[in-house]
């Protein structure tokens, strides 16, 4: 075999098969860990979750002595230790938006789609890598905030325990919630492509929609609000005792997963159809 045919042979062998999901997941993982916004975002996420658990569980338990009976009856220290999710949900949503819109604003998307022209597979890899990281960090922080909140409370205040199934469920769902808002961001980012527009849409879905329902009469408002992401998180999935007018935790959680799936499907459709 001559050198030339040996080279040709190597080339032919290296061209067999095709790239797949695992290759793209590896690419997206390298992208995710090689920009500063990821570590910054996760640092803010950590501080806001654990910090607010320490702050609010500490403050509230200190006031336990003069708390009215009604407040004591609705005491839910588990839910209270997830107050930081108000910020955390936004942090993951912002990271989700940026994970795709920063590729458009910089021009990287052209390199990405030249390397992997099956665009739905690229978004699937982004979803798995980003969603996986957000879920892992979210769960770790949910447990950490829960324990931080329990530890800071005075001993004469009723505590929660992971041995109670509803408490464990609330902790697990609180961790998953931030990952789901992250996926809302990713789907919206794929759909809108511009960073500013994507961030505005994500903030709108999470923060503005509940306010829009304020002028409605209570009887109608309760029926509308319970389907919105933020109220689902606050009143049911991260609560041990779901509030009145809220969906059941499992129904609420299923609905949030459906919202994420719809946004990602819309994003996939848009990516596949549009020119870069």
């Amino acid at each position: 075999m001559t050198a030339a045919t040996a080279v040709a042979e190597t080339r032919t062998r290296s061209l067999r098969g095709h790239y797949g999901f695992a290759d793209l997941a590896r690419m997206e993982w390298i992208k995710l860990r090689s920009v500063r916004s990821t570590s910054w975002g996760l640092a803010i996420f950590t501080v806001s979750l654990i910090g607010s658990a320490l702050l609010f569980n500490g403050l509230t338990s200190a006031a336990w002595g003069h708390m009215p009976a009604a407040d004591r009856a609705s005491w839910d220290p588990t839910n209270l230790s997830f107050t930081g999710l108000i910020i955390g949900q936004l942090v993951t949503a912002v990271l989700g938006v940026l994970f795709i819109t920063s590729e458009y604003s910089s021009g990287l998307i052209r390199s990405t789609f030249a390397a992997a022209p099956r665009r739905p597979l690229v978004l699937a890899a982004k979803t798995a890598v980003f969603g996986g990281l957000a879920l892992l960090v979210g769960e770790v922080l949910a447990f950490a905030s829960f324990f931080a909140g329990e530890l800071i409370m005075r001993s004469d205040v009723p505590h929660a325990s992971l041995a109670t199934p509803t408490v464990l469920r609330a902790v697990l769902m609180a961790g998953a919630y931030a990952a789901l808002t992250g996926l809302f961001g990713l789907g919206l980012g794929a759909l809108i492509r511009r960073t500013a527009g994507g961030l505005a849409a994500a903030a709108g879905v999470i923060f503005v929609l509940p306010f829009l329902t304020l002028p409605l009469p209570d009887s109608i408002r309760n029926d509308v609000t319970k389907f919105l992401p933020e109220p689902i998180a606050a009143s049911s999935i991260s609560a041990v005792r779901p509030e009145a007018h809220a969906l059941s935790p499992w129904l609420g959680f299923a609905l949030l997963c459906l919202y994420a799936a719809v946004l990602l499907a819309a994003g996939t459709f848009a990516l596949a159809r549009r020119d870069v």
Binding site: D23, L24, R26, K31, S34, S111, A115, A116
Partner: peptide, 10 residues
């Protein structure tokens, strides 16, 4: 890192 990410994809 830019090149490493693209190398991984293929």
């Amino acid at each position: 890192a830019h090149l490493a990410a693209l190398a991984a994809s293929n």
